[in-house]
Design a protein around this nucleic acid. Structure first.
Lengths: 350, 350
DNA sequence: CAAAGCGAAAAAACCGGTTTACCAACCGTG
DNA sequence: CACGGTTGGTAAACCGGTTTTTTCGCTTTG
């Protein structure tokens, strides 16, 4: 044998075995099984019983080689262990499997080299397409590489200057809802703690924040707007900075639940009661934030729907549908729990 | 062209293109690139520059077909969105990629049919091997199917009667540590809320619980041991059952953090203060339980190490190493936070 | 009655690698 | 000088499918 058991494999029946058993040619079997020809009932049933008798299944590698497609897609995220990405990946896998696709994990740790590695894997046909989630500002490297690639759908975060199917959420509305809620509860001095300046979601959520402030005739104090990262560490650090101010805010809109988590922990450490002394609104609605004390009020991103939607869009792209000219926007929703208290002389003060 | 752009693919250079450019045969190129022959420097450099000039990369599907291996492994879990599994999968991906393997997601939702589907995929060579995590008791179906399969490593939970590499944690020690801790804090009337009776981890954690009780000369009250499921809903329900008892426990050892989450929420709803009125110890140490109020005291499973370890073991198996005769056991560790209070007349009462 | 047409299925080429088998040239040796 | 061994390759088979092209036998039809 040519390949002396690379993985102690038993020999599986091939299409030639089936053909021999049915007394026809391999081509006849192939075309019958793919319904690309209709054979007379007698021949067809001979093939069918040979398939059944041998328990034949086409070799997937041979199929992939000859068809030139893999029936696999990659989900590129900074880290699939982060619940928001995990939920997306899980939903994506479920949807993909309904269409006969497998999903491979592509963790980038937000490193551009690893992002490029996975784009390479697409270019070299390891997968048919990619669902691409990035979390950092791009200096153009990514954009340039993406330009030459098809079959990528951008999810949740944009890469500037790229033409590709894009599925985002309504970040602006998210910022608006969160901030309006704080204002309605009587807060006047609001802070905004958010991710890295320059990335789309940060800009849009901030724009929502500003619009809500403007609607209420409130000024936006630059000292209360903290750009940094989407993670817990920055949430904690931002608390320290805000807490050190002479005029502290009474409420904070945080652009991710991770930020809120970090700030909540910092509050606890500093003995600041939430929401009595400081109100918090997060963003994402991670599955466990309802169990925090207080349960976190937050803007819900439809993670599962994002994953499903991205898969559907990707498969459509693979089937040749043109790239839509504008991003698809999924709605967000404010989930009111317990991390916002009434404040000041506002009518809704409790 | 035979395949009229199944995915609008540009034609990529093949080994024959390289061979032609270098003025040698495809076989020479193949053998040179795989270092299965050493060619004279002049010929070698001609091939190398042809490779560079054409930017040649071997077609992975052709490689897979001709070698009969996929360089892919599957991670089978009930749901990759559950943080414990997500952490395992993430670490597994990282380790696998270091060895040149890709990882495909296999969500089973704990349904045996889907588990069997993924075992089928292994049998039909969609992947080289499987890391298999299940969460339910097996009636023998799974065991029988696994018997005929190689290249599966069982992770975290056993499937009875299977011979395969197995990587578990020290469940018994986990139960022991958690229970001893409660006893040391002065608790005498302890409850144990756990997953489905019959699965290995449940049995072993319960055995640890009993041993700690026996060490302290304490009786195990059957009414305080609640088998059910590993999820939040059962945690909440178990609280209701325990709370309805005439003689309530002062502390509970819960066999998962999800159970603890459910019970914590139920406590809050019932106005029972944790840990003042009821002490809780969880199991898993999910990444966010430190942010709960109170921060959860729990037994830490080394999720990342489990994932890495499973990958390494699987790759060794693929390389032909024999199946170890006993499971590998990873250590657990008690993480003391704030969900256990001192109780009664014990010296450590605060 | 030759030509045309058609249905059924085989043959052969192809996807893009790897590997086996073999060959030619050259060199040293008994 | 015949023989054997090494060096430096090549041709062809193979992995296991799909697809194009061809063949064969059997009606129709002008």
């Amino acid at each position: 044998m040519r390949n002396p058991t690379p993985l102690n494999h038993a020999r599986l029946p091939t299409i030639r075995d089936v053909a021999a058993a049915a007394g026809v040619s391999p081509a006849a079997v192939s075309r019958h099984l793919n319904r690309s020809v209709v054979l007379p009932a007698e021949t067809a049933s001979r093939i069918d019983s040979a398939v059944a008798a041998l328990n034949y299944r086409p070799n997937i590698q041979a199929l992939r080689l000859s068809r030139g497609i893999t029936q696999m897609i990659g989900v590129v995220t900074p880290d699939i262990a982060y619940p928001f990405f995990a939920m997306i990946a899980s939903a994506a896998e479920e949807e993909a499997s309904r269409f006969g696709y497998s999903v491979v994990i592509c963790n980038t740790r937000n490193q551009i080299e690893r992002e490029l590695d996975y784009l390479d894997k697409l270019a070299w046909r390891h997968v048919d397409g990619l669902i691409f989630l990035t979390n950092h500002a791009d200096d153009g490297t990514l954009g340039k590489r993406l330009e030459r690639l098809q079959n990528v759908v951008l999810l949740d975060e944009d890469v500037a200057g790229t033409v590709a199917p894009k599925i985002f959420i309504d970040n602006h509305m998210g910022g608006l809802l969160a901030t309006r809620h704080l204002i309605e509860q009587g807060h006047r001095r609001l802070a905004h703690v958010t991710g890295p300046a320059g990335v789309m979601s940060v800009k849009e959520r901030f724009a929502g924040f500003r619009q809500a402030m403007a609607e209420a005739g409130l000024p936006v104090d630059e000292a209360l707007v903290k750009f940094g990262a989407y993670d817990e560490a920055w949430g904690a650090e931002a608390f320290r900075q805000l807490f050190a101010l002479a005029e502290r805010p009474s409420a904070v809109f945080l652009a991710s639940d991770a930020l809120a988590l970090g700030m909540l922990a910092a509050c606890r450490a500093a003995g600041v009661a939430v929401p009595r002394s400081l109100s918090l609104v997060g963003f994402d609605d991670l599955p466990f934030v309802r169990y925090l004390d207080p349960p976190l009020t937050t803007v819900r991103q439809p993670a599962e729907e994002l994953g499903r939607c991205a898969v559907r869009r990707l498969i459509e792209t693979l089937r040749g549908l043109p790239v839509p000219d504008r991003p698809e926007r999924l709605p967000v929703e404010l989930v009111v729990r317990g991390s916002v208290a009434g404040h000041g002389s506002h009518p809704s003060l409790r």
